[in-house]
Design a protein around this nucleic acid. Structure first.
Lengths: 336, 336
DNA sequence: CTGAAAGCGCTTACAG
DNA sequence: CTGAAAGCGCTTACAG
């Protein structure tokens, strides 16, 4: 009965207090003042349950990621959460642990909580799961799901730009023999990244040597094994680009274990720019994934949709190369 | 009006449906069946806002941490969230970014959402902020806040055990000259860890050489600088224990830059067992902070309190040493 | 063991 | 520009 107290104190009806609370136009300045004062004096805070029940909006957004423990996501979560907080929106978040089936139950939980909107920032998405949300009339935004681009709003990241920059950096250092550590090709993002790398290579008229491509599981361990495989090849590449930083870190360890010095004997470039990329030795040159921008766009899009504003399709985001110390001219080539 | 549909379908009143929903005893088996079937057939999901509004309970818990970007927290968040999900409880979480003032507004936001309980898992806590929650009648649990131990329930971690294990490990390798990289002493957890280290040293009849203690900011950069300082000392310690893994990682980089080989020339032990500890080279021996257990205890305690069950004070959790490859006998001592 | 009904605290047509 | 009142979808004494 709290809005009633405020109304009494301000000598208005609860309707008027509600109008002030929600910033509706058409309240006389004097009344406005009075109500505001009453709100302040009583330290009044609207009950979100009552609001949600009545208005159908909860000011609650859902955020679904693949894995909190993957250092890729904290920044994304952080950025999304900060934006929401600034608008008085709370975020509940869950993760699928890379299991597309869990997406289904994550979304169900969010629907049960009647969130206003859901950001599905996982690397893999099953369309079935999204349909629940669609049926419940809850707007959804995805990250980099090209095959669903027509059906659901999507924040796209264009990998090609990043790989092109890496490649040009390596070429300018004098590298010609470039290997690649790919991720499992049934994973969308891994396939997309490999395609982008190969496209970059082709655009420089270079061809891809199959024996200079190794596959890893996208984790440190996989990078280590892939690097071991690559180091066993003869001839060897003089530079290696990895699909993600976690595997680049593993590759670094494998190189160290084989007494191959990075960058003196071998150059190495990662992808993502995880915090760890700057912490290993040597600090890793890597392609920065614009995940804060992804979060910002996702939030913007959802919050516009919820308010009924029109949303325009944005141009894809461009990742860029961050040069640190894991790249150098190939052995035998003088630094110019 | 949805519970009404279910009630109609089952030929009972909404009160009975509600009883079934909430698992209240005293519903005839036959009625129970009918209601359950009606719920299943209609795919009925109770509206959490209506529930919360009426019952005062929201099945929403708050979780406050210092910093999502600090790799210490994701596992804690993950564990807390999983436990909550298993009980149909949702979690909203925020972080203070180490600013005790932000704790105030974090807690306010949670109160506005009328969460049922709040876990304040930050390294620093200001009592003022907690009082809001107390006034609102919302149970709170803290992590390792010894000075507030009497007033608020607290999940304690006993640092001493971990440091004693490190020390004994180093002694058994033959080290006698042991340095320490401390954190800023105005930070509770940093002071607690240093005290614990010194206590462990004393319990072995060893004394503390002031010139073998350096201070860092708890981040990688701080560890790097502290290590540089320590490496300049003559005589030098043969082993160094760092207050946390992030600084240990920095120390490792500084050692590398000075061509001091770890562990051959110098042994190094961290604290926390962050994922990164296993990723650097050499993989870091470190004291594992039982953060999943902390989350589990915090959740247990809150959920019991909310249900009105009595809570017993648990014995402090014990961290343990994880031996990897950053420790070896001091130079000149043969491995036995 | 079950039902009728009040009421949780808001928002929102509707009326003036 | 403002108010009276219905109603969002539940839960919970109270009564039987």
């Amino acid at each position: 009965m709290d809005i009633i107290q405020v109304a009494k104190r301000a000598n208005v009806s609860t309707a008027t207090v509600s109008r002030v609370l929600n910033g509706f136009p058409g309240v006389r300045e004097k009344t406005l003042q009075r109500v505001r004062r009453a709100i302040a004096e009583t330290n009044y805070v609207p009950n979100p349950n009552a609001r949600g029940l009545r208005a159908g909006r909860t000011r609650l957004f859902g955020l679904i990621v693949s894995d909190v423990n993957n250092p890729f996501f904290p920044e994304l979560i952080d950025a999304f959460e900060a934006l929401a907080a600034a608008q008085g929106i709370e975020v509940i978040f869950t993760h699928t642990n890379y299991d597309p089936k869990r997406l289904q139950s994550c979304i169900r939980r969010m629907i049960e909580r009647s969130v206003d909107a859901i950001a599905v920032m996982t690397s893999e998405v099953e369309e079935d799961a999204l349909q629940q949300a669609a049926r419940a009339g809850i707007p959804v935004v995805l990250m980099n799901q090209r095959k669903l681009a027509g059906k659901y709003p999507n924040v796209l990241v264009e990998y090609t730009a990043g790989f092109r920059e890496s490649l040009e950096h390596l070429l300018s250092l004098g590298h010609r023999d470039i290997g690649f550590i790919e991720g499992p090709q049934w994973i969308n993002s891994a396939r997309g990244r490999k395609d982008a790398f190969i496209a970059a290579l082709k655009s420089h008229g270079m061809h891809v040597r199959d024996e200079w491509i190794a596959t890893g599981d996208l984790r440190v361990e996989g990078g280590r094994k892939a690097m071991d495989a690559l180091l066993a090849r003869r001839p060897r590449p003089t530079a290696i680009v990895a699909t993600n930083d976690l595997m680049a870190v593993g590759a670094l360890q494998a190189a160290y274990a084989s007494r191959v010095r990075v960058p003196r004997d071998l150059s190495l470039i990662g992808f993502d720019d995880l915090p760890i990329a700057a912490m290993v030795h040597p600090p890793l040159s890597t392609i920065r994934h614009p995940r804060r921008e992804v979060a910002a766009r996702a939030f913007e899009l959802l919050s516009k949709t919820v308010r009924g504003e029109p949303v325009a399709e944005d141009a894809p985001l461009q990742p860029h190369l961050v040069i640190r110390n894991s790249t150098a001219p190939p052995p035998g080539v003088k630094r110019r």
